[in-house]
Amino acid sequence: MREFKILLSLILLTTLSAFAQSPKTYLIVHGAFGGGYAWKKVDSLLTARGNKVYRPTLTGLGERYHLASSEVDLSTHVADIVNVILFEDLHNIVLVGHSYGGMVVTGVADSLPDRTAQIVYIDAHIAEDRKSAFDLRVGGTDLLKYEKDGMLIPPFVADSESFPHNVPQSVATLTERRPLRRPHPRNGKYILTVDDPQKPEADAFYQYEKVAKDLGWQTYRLTADHNPQNSKPEDLVKLLQE
């Protein structure tokens, strides 16, 4: 019996290792004010390892800024990604959400629960039923002081002739309270990025790591700023490959 248990454990470890190293399909959803362009380096690193990567830009942002409107809301962005999955006929995907993108991927997983193998939140909001991003983020409503005609235009949104750069985003994307049938997917994982590894509790997204642990998800920490796709792309890709 002991030998059988050892053999079974070895088979399981081998299977898990093979899964971790096997090529995967990643669908990456960027954060607020940004675009898919911000994930170009991560895309290149994952693709070089044999994976397939999709990094669409949400309506009204990045190269789709010409579609910007105060009518664009969270449901619009969920539909953006749902349609990528449907029209590209994607299955067994690793769905990745960064920052605000966590709100989007939760809605996507709720709409298409059978299409995702794993959902990875990177310094991201974990959505709740009928709660907006502003409801969930401590101090999030501070951004409302930068509202103009239904759009948020904070100081870090560059009015620049050089591209690419952040662009204004509709207030409705952060205030919509979207209903969820399954707000907490079972296959979630959480990566918390911390500037100071000695003081993770000072991080604005620390609260979500605690939520992830309460949900029984695997959690990871990466010493990086809020945008590891720029500051630590190689380290981030190593985590995503797990």
Rank of each mutant, 00 (worst) to 15 (best):
A204N: 14
L7P: 02
S70F: 03
R182S: 14
T116D: 11
E161A: 14
A32H: 01
L45I: 14
T14W: 10
S160E: 02
G107K: 07
N230C: 00
A202P: 08
K131L: 12
A172R: 12
K24L: 08
I191P: 04
D73F: 05
D80P: 09
V84E: 13
V105T: 05
D123M: 08
N83F: 02
F134G: 03
A18Y: 11
M103F: 08
V94M: 08
A212I: 11
M151Y: 02
A79G: 02
M151I: 10
L58W: 00
K52F: 01
D80R: 06
R64F: 13
N83H: 13
V105L: 03
K24I: 06
K199W: 09
A133I: 01
L136M: 07
W39V: 13
A38K: 10
S170P: 04
R186E: 14
E234D: 14
A20E: 15
D149Y: 05
P164F: 09
T141P: 00
A79C: 04
K210W: 07
S231R: 02
D43R: 14
L180W: 11
R178D: 00
L61H: 00
E176M: 03
T219S: 12
G60D: 11
T14E: 10
D203N: 15
L236K: 04
L27M: 12
P113G: 02
E176H: 03
V157E: 05
D123Y: 06
L236G: 09
L61N: 06
A204W: 12
N92W: 05
V167M: 10
A38G: 09
L144E: 04
P200G: 06
G36K: 12
V72I: 15
G97S: 11
V171C: 03
P185T: 08
D149W: 06
P168F: 06
Q21Y: 12
A20P: 07
G34L: 12
S22V: 06
I122S: 06
K189C: 05
A117I: 01
L10D: 11
D110Q: 10
L61R: 03
S160V: 01
Q169P: 00
T106D: 05
A32G: 12
A38T: 14
Y65L: 09
R64M: 13
S170Q: 13
D142Y: 11
L8K: 14
R177W: 04
D123G: 11
L16Y: 08
E128V: 06
T76G: 01
L86I: 12
P228H: 11
P179G: 09
R2E: 13
H226W: 07
L10Y: 07
Y190R: 08
D135K: 14
A109T: 13
A133V: 02
K40W: 12
Y146R: 11
A109N: 15
S132M: 04
K210R: 15
H98K: 08
Q241M: 15
L12V: 15
Q21G: 04
L45A: 10
G62D: 10
S69G: 03
L86Q: 15
L222F: 07
D114F: 07
A212G: 09
L215H: 14
T47L: 05
P56H: 05
G60M: 11
L86W: 05
E161Y: 11
R49T: 08
N83I: 02
Y206E: 08
L174W: 01
Q218R: 15
P155E: 01
N92C: 02
